[in-house]
Amino acid sequence: ETKSLTLVLHRDSGSLGFNIIGGRPSVDNHDGSSSEGIFVSKIVDSGPAAKEGGLQIHDRIIEVNGRDLSRATHDQAVEAFKTAKEPIVVQVLRR
């Protein structure tokens, strides 16, 4: 079962304390579909994302501050987090 969660993150020394993997390839599949998503791959101990109620590894990131990342490329997702103003509201899907 997958549930949708909304989390609020604040940077600590400029970092949110997690890494992402995935992202849509720069070239779409011929039918326009994509199974890619942006997923949390690593969480830094005691970083902002590790706090209670924070992110978990394998969370799929859907949205950052209202910006849809469900079909974003990896670079677009990285840029969305880099430029996001605080508080950073992150919507994820968690299995």
Rank of each mutant, 00 (worst) to 15 (best):
H30E: 14
N19K: 11
D31F: 08
D68A: 03
E63F: 06
R71N: 14
L55G: 00
G23F: 07
I20W: 08
L69T: 04
V90A: 09
L5K: 06
S33I: 13
S26N: 13
E1N: 15
K51D: 08
I61M: 01
S46R: 09
A50G: 12
F81C: 00
E52R: 10
S15P: 03
K51F: 08
S70H: 09
D28M: 09
S33Y: 10
R94F: 01
V89E: 08
S34N: 15
L9S: 01
I57M: 08
F18Q: 01
T2Y: 15
E63C: 11
V92S: 01
E1F: 13
H30C: 11
K3V: 10
H58N: 14
H30G: 10
H10T: 14
R11N: 04
L55H: 00
V92P: 02
P87S: 01
L9G: 03
G14Q: 06
K51S: 10
F18L: 03
F18K: 02
D12Q: 14
E86C: 05
V8T: 15
R60N: 06
G23T: 10
I61R: 00
E63S: 14
D45K: 13
A50H: 14
I61C: 01
I62T: 06
G23D: 06
G66M: 02
D59N: 01
H10W: 09
R24V: 09
D45A: 13
I88Y: 04
L93N: 08
S35D: 08
V44N: 13
D31T: 10
T2R: 09
H30Q: 15
R11M: 04
E63D: 10
I20F: 13
G53E: 07
R94V: 01
V92Y: 01
S41F: 02
G37V: 01
I61H: 00
G37Y: 02
I57E: 12
G53Y: 07
I57G: 03
A50R: 09
R67K: 13
S41L: 02
I43T: 04
A84N: 01
D31H: 13
R60G: 02
D68C: 05
I88E: 00
N65C: 04
D12V: 13
I21T: 11
I62F: 03
S34Y: 11
R67W: 08
A49Q: 10
P87K: 03
E52K: 11
G32T: 11
G54Y: 07
A49T: 08
D45N: 12
S70C: 07
V89M: 07
R94K: 02
E36M: 10
S13V: 06
A50M: 08
G66A: 03
L9H: 03
D59F: 00
P87T: 02
S46Q: 10
A49R: 09
V8E: 15
I61V: 06
V27D: 13
S35E: 14
A72R: 01
K42N: 15
R11V: 03
D31C: 09
L55C: 01
G54E: 06
L69D: 03
V92N: 03
S34M: 11
I61L: 05
H10E: 14
L55W: 00
G54W: 05
D28G: 14
H58K: 08
D75P: 08
I61Y: 00
E86F: 03
H10Y: 14
E36R: 07
I88D: 04
V8A: 08
G47E: 06
E63H: 07
G23Y: 08
T2S: 12
I62Y: 03
G53Q: 08
G17D: 05
S46P: 08
I57V: 15
R11I: 03
D75H: 11
E52N: 12
A49N: 12
R94Q: 02
H30F: 14
L16F: 04
H30T: 10
G54D: 05
G23P: 15
R95V: 06
I62M: 15
E52G: 11
K85M: 07
D28V: 12
D28W: 09
V44T: 12
V8K: 15
E86H: 05
F81I: 04
V27R: 13
G47I: 06
H58P: 01
V90G: 00
R67L: 13
I38C: 04
G23A: 08
I62Q: 04
K51E: 09
V27T: 14
G53N: 09
T6W: 05
S4Y: 13
I43M: 05
V27W: 10
R94P: 02
I43C: 04
K51Y: 10
L7H: 03
N65S: 03
D59H: 00
F39T: 05
R95C: 07
A84T: 04
G14N: 13
H10I: 06
G17V: 02
K85R: 09
L69S: 00
D12A: 13
Q91K: 15
R95Q: 15
V8W: 08
D68R: 03
E63A: 15
G54N: 08
V90D: 07
D31K: 07
E1R: 06
R60E: 08
F18S: 01
V89I: 13
G47Q: 06
S26W: 09
L55N: 00
G14D: 14
F39K: 04
H30L: 14
D45G: 12
N29S: 05
F18M: 04
G47Y: 07
K42T: 11
L7D: 01
E63L: 06
H58F: 09
L93C: 08
K3W: 05
R60T: 02
S4L: 14
K3G: 05
V78D: 06
D12M: 13
V40I: 13
K85Q: 12
I61D: 02
P87C: 01
D59P: 00
H10G: 07
N29D: 14
N19E: 15
A49M: 07
D28E: 10
E52T: 11
L7K: 04
Q91C: 05
E36I: 08
E52P: 12
D75F: 09
G22D: 07
R95A: 08
N29K: 15
L93K: 07
A72S: 07
G47S: 13
D45S: 11
D68W: 00
G22Y: 12
V92C: 04
S35M: 11
S4G: 05
D68V: 02
K85F: 04
D28S: 12
L69P: 01
D31V: 10
K3L: 09
R94C: 00
G17C: 03
A72V: 08
K3R: 07
K42M: 08
G32D: 11
G17Q: 04
L69N: 00
I62A: 03
G54L: 11
D31A: 11
L9C: 06
S34P: 15
E1S: 07
I62C: 06
R71H: 14
T2E: 09
V92H: 02
S15M: 07
S4T: 14
I62G: 01
L69I: 11
G53W: 05
D75G: 10
A50S: 13
G53H: 09
V27K: 11
R67Y: 14
L5T: 04
A50Y: 07
G53A: 08
V44Y: 14
G14H: 06
H10D: 08
G47L: 06
H10L: 06
L55A: 01
